[in-house]
Amino acid sequence: MKSLLPTWRLHAKAAVAAAAMSLAALLGAAPAHADAASVPAFTDGFGLTQVGAPEVHSSTDFTITVTTRQLSGEHRIRIFLPQGYGADPGKRWPVTYFLHGGGGTVDDAAAAPALHSDSMITVVPDGGLKGWYADWAMQNTAMGAANWQTFHTTQVVPFIDANLRTIADRSHRAVVGLSMGGYGALRYAEARPDLFGHTASLSGGIDFGMAEIRAAVLATELNVTGAWCAVSTSTPAGTGRCTGYGPYVDSDAIFGSPYPVFNADHIWNEVDPAATANLARLGGTGITLYTGNQWPIDHFTEIASNTVKTRLDQLRIPSRLVDYGNGSSLSPTCDGGHDYGCWAPALADYIPRLQAAFTAAS
């Protein structure tokens, strides 16, 4: 598989340059802090135990830390509440789960202001530097326990519903993600259509039939700090340094063998969001795909997104694809690449549409 990896390392310096402006905007100002008493209190449950005090940016923007047997270590969950949440204690709200990309953290969500909406709650759970929103095939790696899908769908979702005033049905619950999280968003919508009635994938690695996307997963497993890591908002602005994907793990650790020989890659095929059998589970789900088409990454996410769109059309499942190409049709900040200069305006386009869908469901 080594021959595939250089494809994803092409022009990494260019990717860093494309992201620098949005990174500087995100990281240039320190958040205001409020007292922990100004945010809702959470009760442990569903296998989650809170650790320490909340990290409070404001009364509507805070982060809690939890532990779970499903994952090694401590994991943060950032939460954005609508401004009116505290003023109307009888009102319930729709919820959007935002899944960050590879090499990123929950704080990346601050780079997209549209996610902090006054019409919904936004929950940003830790997805790991290379969790890939999956229950890993190997649990004895340097990462330890790694059941990310179980953590998110069977623990975080009911934990949020139990502790916040949510509208706890699929019509009022969305899962949205970008890059690695774009894979997670579409995969979770397919795996748990009972939970999520809306999904959006931005520049997602959503076609495991493509060798280039499998190579991107391998790059994270092997901690090859290529283009996906280079544009993470975890990178200090303008430095080009990347925190990486965490410890090296076996190339079979997440989805088993990637090689299509004697069905060795059966897990990849089973969890492939572009597989027709998986897409068929999205009937009745609101589906939106966004992608640019510039190197080194969105050239491939465009191919993947068009494949998914074509197969959904063949299944007669409605969906919306926004291919903004080189970015000129989307925003002056977007160059069609793999960064928040494109993702922030894409989310600014998507969130009002999602809010309208939530309202219509009510």
Rank of each mutant, 00 (worst) to 15 (best):
V231G: 14
G86A: 06
D126E: 15
I267N: 06
G292Y: 00
L321E: 09
L10N: 02
A145P: 01
D118S: 04
W343M: 00
L26S: 08
F42D: 11
D252Q: 04
R92P: 02
V157L: 06
D118A: 09
A344R: 01
G226Y: 15
A137D: 09
V175Y: 13
V308N: 11
G28D: 04
H11G: 07
G182M: 08
K91A: 15
L321V: 05
A200D: 07
H75M: 15
V123F: 00
V249N: 12
A109G: 08
V56M: 10
G292P: 06
L222W: 07
R76D: 11
T49G: 08
S251I: 06
V56F: 03
E74F: 15
L222Y: 12
W8K: 14
T225Y: 01
T199P: 08
R92M: 01
G284S: 14
T67S: 13
V106F: 13
P352W: 08
F208D: 01
A219M: 11
W228K: 09
P54F: 00
G244Q: 12
G131K: 02
R281P: 00
I167M: 07
G131F: 10
T141V: 06
L218I: 09
E212W: 10
F62C: 04
G256N: 00
H75L: 15
W8H: 07
